[in-house]
Design a protein around this nucleic acid. Structure first.
Lengths: 144, 144
DNA sequence: GACGATAGTTGAGCTTGTCAACTATCGCGG
DNA sequence: CCGCGATAGTTGACAAGCTCAACTATCGTC
């Protein structure tokens, strides 16, 4: 039945990664729903999430974080600015750069966004308290 | 310093989920790179991945899997078909539906795609064999 | 003070994605 | 068997994402 010839045994790491990918994929509908709820497109949502209200960054840095072109960020920020969630502020030391400042309203939306997005998926919720703890510890070790 | 007022203690589950999200996000550049390498756009890549060479499905089912509109799938499949990776085949029982068949070339690309995408990220690779095993076991429990 | 490098914007061009309209077909109830 | 609502897929219109190349303004430096 298997067209993929070499169906060799998966290592534990491979299997774990594959399961995490599945978990991730299952969160997609939620992300889409949340973005729409807040009147944001998914990329705008990611952009707002990526910004730190306590630490304004130049646009090029946001571009780097999102792994995309600067020209793309222009449009993204335009959208967020149009809704009063973000402001372009001139940098003092360099008149070329615009610092991205999250407005008060932006902080509010961002916080609510965060709360919903970080809601633990049911699959993880189902685990025993012990499993949840161990899971966290292992992932902490993985990511430093 | 924290603008988010209520910085309450995170539960283990929340922390675990947050770490998994981070891991996921760090895989983004790889996905983009892989898609480009294979001459596919990311959505086309996801579509090809979602198809099962052993089990042709109607387009509407692919749409459901990708959580998008059927009209969107039309374009996606157009792209894949243009590269000879997928074919529309008439269903025997219902002349309205088109079954999506992955071509030989499609299977080849899909397999290579799979191999690269399922490559375990360094963070997980770094873990001890024991941790990897436990991680897999817990995730298995979470996802059945 | 000229010159190469950098930040950001703009415009062209393609892909994604949604919605609404349309065609072809199905299956059912009369 | 006919007609009629439901379904599969396509098409077109339109908004947005994304990249690239060109452009402007500014910076740092020789």
């Amino acid at each position: 039945m298997a067209t993929e010839a070499k169906r060799r045994r998966k290592t534990a790491a491979e299997e774990a990664w594959s399961l995490m990918s599945r978990l991730l994929w299952e969160m997609r509908p939620r992300m889409l729903r949340v973005a729409q709820e807040f009147g944001l497109t998914p990329p705008q949502m990611f952009a707002l999430r990526a910004l730190d209200p306590d630490n304004p960054v130049p646009m090029r840095e946001l571009a780097a974080t999102l792994h995309c072109d600067s020209s793309n960020v222009t449009g993204l920020v335009d959208g967020l600015a149009a809704q009063g969630l973000v402001e372009r502020r001139e940098a003092e030391h360099d008149r070329r750069v615009r610092m991205l400042v999250v407005t008060e309203r932006g902080v509010e939306v961002r916080d609510r966004l965060h709360a919903v997005i970080q809601e633990v998926p049911p699959a993880v919720m189902r685990l025993s308290a012990t499993d949840q703890g161990v899971l966290r510890d292992i992932l902490k070790r993985a990511l430093d």
